[in-house]
């Protein structure tokens, strides 16, 4: 029995496989969030903005997505059979789940690790970490070496998750420390982050032959050639990356517009109150 998904070179079947390490990790994360929420609720009496229901739901959704991406069948297929599913895993683990987890991060006071967190989530540091991890974890030598063992596969998944958290923190804002980036810096931040996505996707799409031996030599899945699978992975990276960039920029833009409108109406109210006798 495996504790974490990795490439095994055995023919794919739709027979369920347990991954105890994934369950322990997801359970530990869920317990940490629950404990942090209950502690914060006692301390702040439930009035803290980070204790609102949508944020709690976001954290639950983030943990659920993480579980879905790491466990059978997505985890198994992505680790040793299909590059395209590996890419789906990337988006779930490195992009979507971390955004939900950061937005739903329970309230917390600065602690002994705050300085380190602040340093890692400085926008310049965060973007370098994120882009470096995206490029490194999609390079063929790293993928082929790491996916061959459970420890390597675990390391790659954790690198994605941590890089995703570091990436979203300056945009969404954590429970303490630096305020979220303001427009237009946040738009520039998102744009720079997309360069690594685009580079990796173009590399996959332009390759004449499969670049990852893990997927090229894996027992085949019916109905899809190795090169089509890789093209699909590159396309997913390109479109998924673009969707996230456009989505994030849209959110940033509409929030900025709403703030501007609120500010404008505040100014108008102030002006009219000065004019009235």
């Amino acid at each position: 029995m495996q504790w974490w998904c990795s490439a095994q070179g055995i023919a794919w079947t739709w027979t369920w496989r347990p991954y105890v390490g994934v369950w322990i990790m997801v359970l530990a994360l869920a317990l940490w969030y629950w404990r942090s929420y209950t502690r914060a609720a006692r301390e702040w009496g439930g009035v803290h903005p980070r204790l609102r229901t949508p944020r709690v739901i976001a954290s639950i959704a983030g943990i659920a997505l993480l579980w879905m991406a790491l466990d059978w069948p997505i985890g198994t297929l992505g680790a040793g059979y299909l590059a395209s599913v590996h890419m789906v895993q990337f988006f779930l683990i490195a992009m979507i789940a971390p955004a939900l987890l950061v937005w739903g991060w329970p309230p917390a006071r600065p602690g002994p690790l705050s300085a380190a967190v602040n340093a890692l989530t400085h926008p310049v540091v965060a973007i370098i970490i994120f882009d470096a991890v995206v490029v490194a974890t999609h390079s063929p030598p790293v993928v082929d070496s790491l996916m061959a063992s459970q420890a390597g596969s675990f390391l790659l998944d954790m690198a994605w998750l941590l890089a995703g958290i570091v990436f979203w923190w300056p945009l969404i804002g954590g429970p303490f420390g630096r305020a979220p980036l303001r427009t237009p810096l946040n738009i520039a931040y998102i744009f720079v982050s997309s360069l690594s996505h685009t580079g990796v996707s173009m590399y996959l799409l332009l390759a004449r032959f499969p670049v990852y031996s893990t997927y090229e030599l894996a027992p085949p899945m019916s109905g899809i050639t190795k090169l089509t699978d890789q093209d699909l992975a590159g396309g997913l990276m390109l479109l998924g990356g673009a969707a996230i960039v456009l989505g994030a920029i849209s959110v940033v833009f509409f929030k900025w517009q709403a703030e501007e409108e609120r500010e404008e109406s505040r100014r108008q109210r102030a002006a009219s109150s000065e004019l009235s006798p």
Partner: peptide, 17 residues
């Protein structure tokens, strides 16, 4: 399928960049 040591994995991350 050879399991990797933590040191080898760390080295690979750097060289892979």
């Amino acid at each position: 399928r050879v399991p990797l040591g933590a040191r080898a994995i760390a080295t690979m991350f750097v060289t892979a960049l």
